[in-house]
């Protein structure tokens, strides 16, 4: 029997095993994100003649669990740009709050000055790069869509490492593999993109969302889509995938127990 005061009232190790005191620790080392928890999947976007079309589904997954089915992953900024978020949802919400305060700060006082999509992308990429350099990343892949300083369509990507690039069409996550080839078919280069009509761009993006739903297990058929032009942002947050065809499904052979 143990009579030390430290042991009073504690469960006995020889009966219950070593006491797990880990929950008592609150002054441990500062913790940084090491992996995403609740995640959003692909974001796809395509430039066209007068602007950009961008889309992402409304699903937030918890591992393989379709956890939240009404999460809006396209966020407006200052009625000039849209940011599409892939990756960790809590980091997305943090960035959204950050962008809201930036928007307020920018709109406050002096008039006539706004941050365009290009400015916004530069800013976000600096935030992401700073955080990765602190070994405390914001676990997102994001697309910024809008217009640049010359009112021409602007589309660029940034990720948790601070890597940035721009292209006539972009897609994050699974979309980079499945949607990007389809989008590059309609807009192989800037010139081709500058000739696309809104209808063509919408069709290509919606088709991409459909292909992603067919093949990306972490996707959903409810999605958001936004069109950004110089007239403003047209954001729809409750779109349903149309004209799905699962006729191919019973043709599939060779998976699981169904061998022939």
């Amino acid at each position: 029997m143990n009579h030390l005061p430290q042991a009073w009232g504690r469960p006995r190790d020889d009966v219950y095993g070593a006491y797990d005191s880990s929950y008592l620790q609150n002054g441990g080392p500062t913790q940084h994100t090491q992996r995403p928890i609740v995640t959003g999947t692909s974001v796809v976007a395509l430039k066209f003649k007068d602007g950009v079309v961008i889309a992402a589904d409304n699903l937030a997954s918890y591992g393989s669990l379709a956890r939240f089915t009404d999460v809006k992953r396209l966020r407006k900024f200052a009625e000039t740009s849209v940011v599409g978020f892939g990756g960790d949802v809590s980091d997305m919400q943090y960035l959204d709050r950050l962008l809201n305060s930036l928007d307020i700060q920018e709109a406050y006082g002096s008039s006539g000055h706004t941050l365009n999509a290009q400015n916004l992308h530069t800013y976000l990429s600096k935030v992401l790069y700073k955080r990765r350099s602190d070994f405390n990343p914001l676990w997102n892949q994001l697309l910024v869509a809008g217009l640049d300083g010359e009112s021409k369509p602007f589309l660029a990507a940034a990720d948790l490492l601070g890597t940035t690039f721009s292209s006539p069409s972009l897609a994050t996550g699974y979309g980079a593999h499945l949607a990007q080839p389809l989008l590059r078919n309609v807009a192989p280069d800037e010139e081709a993109a500058s000739k696309l009509s809104l209808e063509q761009a919408l069709e290509a993006v919606k088709e991409s969302m459909k292909v992603l739903f067919y093949r990306d297990a972490r996707s959903m058929d409810k999605y958001s889509i936004a069109v950004i032009t110089k007239d403003g942002i047209d954001l729809k947050e409750n779109e349903q995938l149309e004209k799905q065809s699962w006729a191919f499904a019973d043709q599939i052979r060779g998976y699981g127990t169904q061998v022939n």
Binding site: D13, Q31, T33, S133
Partner: peptide, 21 residues
């Protein structure tokens, strides 16, 4: 002793960093 007297702060081993910058 029948209870763990290990220091309450060290939870044993270093945390593995899975983030590669």
């Amino acid at each position: 002793y029948s209870f763990n007297q290990a220091p309450a702060t060290a939870s044993g081993g270093n945390t593995e960093h899975s983030f590669y910058p």
